[in-house]
Every structure is written in structure tokens, then in C-alpha cells.
């Protein structure tokens, strides 16, 4: 099967003073090509660790991740990343940031220039190409980060709370953009988020993770991402089905948090 296979991945961090943290315990997950999977869970459930293993920045203690049948051993340009913030190169302009990947690969300038212009149009920043990135607002910076990632035409996009630092209104607008880019490009996307609403709205599949040790608690198959292109976001988010799922997952995560608190004090 093409896509991502996460096969019995465990991750144990050894602490400098001795002692171990079981960040992930025997996590398995198959992600089909072109799927948008959102991952949700309380802090400490290992969701960022999982993403870093898929990205190739961490080697799992046991198990492996395969992308199109090839075992992941390190980072690679077929897996693009979008970080929360501060991962843009502030010494470059918007255009230069977007062109970074193609330039590193030594692609012809004219071709890159055309591609960059097209991507800036897509994310709504065509007038900002010459600007230094630090002059842009937080939401615009994340648009640049998305465009920079797409410029490399990766198979998979890994998003580590890409909208986490944005204000509520900008965030909602950006969710629409992510959805639109996913539909247009057909990329496989893994999205880590703290927001239940965002995970429900964007994910075709929603993975709820639980902490201590980090594991997959539940997997939901969701219809909302497909609806997202035809109906308005507010309409979807106010629907009875959506609200019911949201409350269900929220209370599940609440219980996990309570349990952690109980362990900590008890």
C-alpha cells in the first residue's frame, strides 16, 4: 500500500538523571495516500514525538515507520513540515522563503520563480513577495510556511500545531485554507492540534491519543472535512452531529487530564 505505515512504534526517552519516560507505547496506524489525519490528545500523550518520528528527526526505540514501503531513517524532502511559528527564515523575503526548497535542490530559477508566484497567489500573498517575513502578521507568516512546504511538492505534509499561535478568527480562516489546499493538491496530511474543533473540522480521520504511556485511545472516521468545501464552516461547526462529537471527545480528554492530576497528587 502507498501512504504511511506506522508499525508498532514505541519510544522510550532516557532522562539524564536516570529514569525513563514512555512517550509512545506500541503505536500502529495506517494512513492512506491523500488522507487528512488529525491527531489530538492531552499534553504529554506523545503526539509531537510521533510526528517527529514520522518526520525522521527521532529514531523510535522499537518499531518502524514506512513511507511508500521505504523505512524512514531520517528527514527527507518528500515529507514537508509546517511548524507552529518561528520556523521561517527571517533573513529572507517571503519569496525567498518559499523558494528555499527548490533553490537548495538547484532547480532552474525561472521555473522556481513561476512556481513561487503561483503558490503566493494560492495562499493570498501575491502582493507580499518582496517583503521581509518579519513584517507579516502571524496568520500571513503561516501562509508563507504552507507555501514554502508546498513549493517542494512533498508526498506528505506534517503539521505540528500550525495554527496554534493564531487568534481565533485568523485561525478559522486558516482552517479553510488548509482544507482548500488539501483538496486542491491531494496531499497526505498529518495534523497535530490542541483544538478539538479544529481536529474534527479538518480530519477525515481523527486519532485521540492518551498519555502515560502515549498510545492511541480511539480512532474516528469523520464526514466534516468532505462537507467543508460545500457548506460554510460555521454551519458545519454548529451542526448537531459536530457538537455531539465535540462534547464526547472533550469529555474524554478531560477525563485523561483528571487522571493525570490524580496521579500527580495521589
Amino acid at each position: 500500500m502507498t501512504g504511511i505505515a506506522i508499525d508498532s512504534v514505541s519510544m522510550v526517552f532516557t532522562l539524564p538523571g536516570g529514569g525513563e519516560v514512555h512517550a509512545l507505547n506500541n503505536v500502529s496506524l495506517d494512513i492512506k495516500e491523500g488522507e487528512l489525519v488529525s491527531v489530538l490528545g492531552p499534553s504529554g500523550c506523545g503526539k509531537t514525538t510521533l510526528l517527529n518520528i514520522v518526520a525522521g528527526f527521532l529514531a523510535p526505540t522499537s518499531g518502524e515507520v514506512r513511507l511508500n514501503h521505504h523505512t524512514v531513517t531520517g528527514p527527507g524532502s518528500e515529507r514537508g513540515m509546517v511548524f507552529q511559528q518561528g520556523a521561517l527564515f527571517e533573513w529572507l523575503t517571503v519569496e525567498q522563503n518559499v523558494a528555499f526548497g527548490p533553490n537548495m535542490a538547484g532547480k532552474p530559477k525561472a521555473e522556481t520563480q513561476e512556481k513561487v508566484q503561483h503558490l503566493l497567489d494560492t495562499v493570498g500573498l501575491s502582493d507580499f513577495g518582496e517583503k521581509p517575513v518579519y513584517q507579516l502578521s502571524g496568520g500571513m507568516q503561516q501562509r508563507v510556511a504552507l507555501a514554502r512546504c508546498l513549493a517542494n511538492d512533498p508526498d506528505v505534509i506534517l503539521m505540528d500545531e500550525p495554527l496554534g499561535a493564531l487568534d481565533a478568527l485568523t485561525r478559522e480562516k486558516m482552517q479553510g485554507l488548509v482544507l482548500q489546499l488539501w483538496k486542491e493538491t491531494g496531499k497526505t496530511i498529518i495534523l497535530i492540534t490542541h483544538s478539538v474543533e479544529e481536529a474534527l473540522f479538518l480530519g477525515e480521520k481523527l486519532i485521540v491519543m492518551a498519555p502515560r504511556p502515549g498510545r492511541i485511545e480511539r480512532v474516528y472516521e469523520l464526514p466534516f472535512a468532505d462537507l467543508g468545501m460545500s457548506k460554510s464552516p460555521r454551519e458545519i461547526k454548529a451542526g448537531a452531529d459536530f457538537v455531539e462529537k465535540r462534547e464526547e471527545i472533550l469529555s474524554m480528554i478531560w477525563e485523561m487530564e483528571e487522571e493525570i492530576m490524580g496521579q500527580a497528587t495521589g
Partner: peptide
Amino acid sequence: SKVHAAYSLGASKMQILRH
């Protein structure tokens, strides 16, 4: 995250040093 972003964009070690 800047270094990781550059690796994910396909940069080599020398390119990461330089860019």
C-alpha cells in the same frame, strides 16, 4: 525548528551551515 524545517526542505548539512 528552523534547522528541522531546512532538513525537511531537502537541504544538505553544508547548505544548512551556509543558509
